[in-house]
Simulated assay, not measured.
Amino acid sequence: MPKILITNDDGIYSRGIRAAIEALRGLGDVYVVAPMFQRSASGRAMTLHRPLRAKRVTINGVKAAYALDGMPVDCVIFALARFGSFDLAISGINLGENMSTEITISGTASAAIEAATHGIPSIAISLEVNREKYKFGAGEEIDFTMAKLFLKKIAKAVLEKGLPKGVDMLNVNIPYDADESTPIEITRLARRMYQPSVEERIDPKGTPYYWIVGTQCPRDVLEPGTDMYAVKVERKVSVTPINIDMTADVDLKYLRGHLGL
């Protein structure tokens, strides 16, 4: 039986991770290692300056499960050390979409990227939510039915056929209103998803403090063929192939001459 790792950045008690377990049932032996707490927007952060604590958790239908008081990337590293390599790694199902080049901020995508650096075919999967407050909850109000359906379909294909040469992971985003007939679009990453800004406020003692906030890019500037266009405009499932070699596709000799080196 294939060995499958499931992790996330919403925490081990998120309903999204239970949905992923249900979706993968019967496809292989499932292991779960996920953060004890919400770790959204943690990116590729690792815990190097203190020890990690791990708690064994009982979850029906899995070979073993641990909650780790670290980051999503820590969870992948811990899982490899504890259980050896895997045939497939799944990060998600995340509450809230993860699209554009900003996936490097996402703990969900970064966990899949970490697994991919170890040669494990990986899928990061996120479910769009229609209310901002749902992004940092446990998912009590969310219907994961369609996300589970598409995850099972894509995971089964990857287990059977692997990923094509040059593809290390897939970044999948499901519209919140998807149904069984929703098309799947193979996309590229949009340039960015949010326009960030810093909001200054004053605490009761008169001292300023700051929130980093962001507004989503308007639909009329979204470029066809990108993940954001597929999900936000066309209401399609977006599947973006990711290569973890971020070397620019440029003639290296030309670059040397261009820079005068």
Rank of each mutant, 00 (worst) to 15 (best):
M36P: 01
P204Q: 09
R191L: 05
G28N: 01
I202L: 08
K148V: 10
K135R: 15
A190T: 04
A109P: 02
W211D: 10
A178G: 00
K156Q: 14
I105V: 11
G162L: 09
N243D: 11
D179H: 04
L189E: 03
L24H: 01
N98F: 01
I93D: 04
R235Y: 09
I93Y: 06
R44Q: 07
A155W: 01
E132P: 04
E132W: 15
V237S: 10
G225Q: 06
I59S: 01
E141M: 15
P175A: 13
E200V: 14
R53M: 07
A116C: 12
D227W: 03
E102F: 03
A155C: 11
M46Y: 09
L80K: 09
W211Y: 13
A155P: 12
K156M: 07
P218L: 10
V233W: 07
V221Y: 05
Y254N: 12
A111I: 05
V213G: 08
P224S: 09
L95M: 11
E140Y: 15
S85D: 06
G43A: 07
V30T: 10
V57C: 02
N60R: 11
G225M: 09
A138N: 11
Y209D: 03
G11M: 05
V33G: 08
R39V: 00
K156V: 00
L127I: 13
T117S: 15
D203M: 11
E223W: 06
V233T: 12
V32C: 04
T47A: 11
G225P: 01
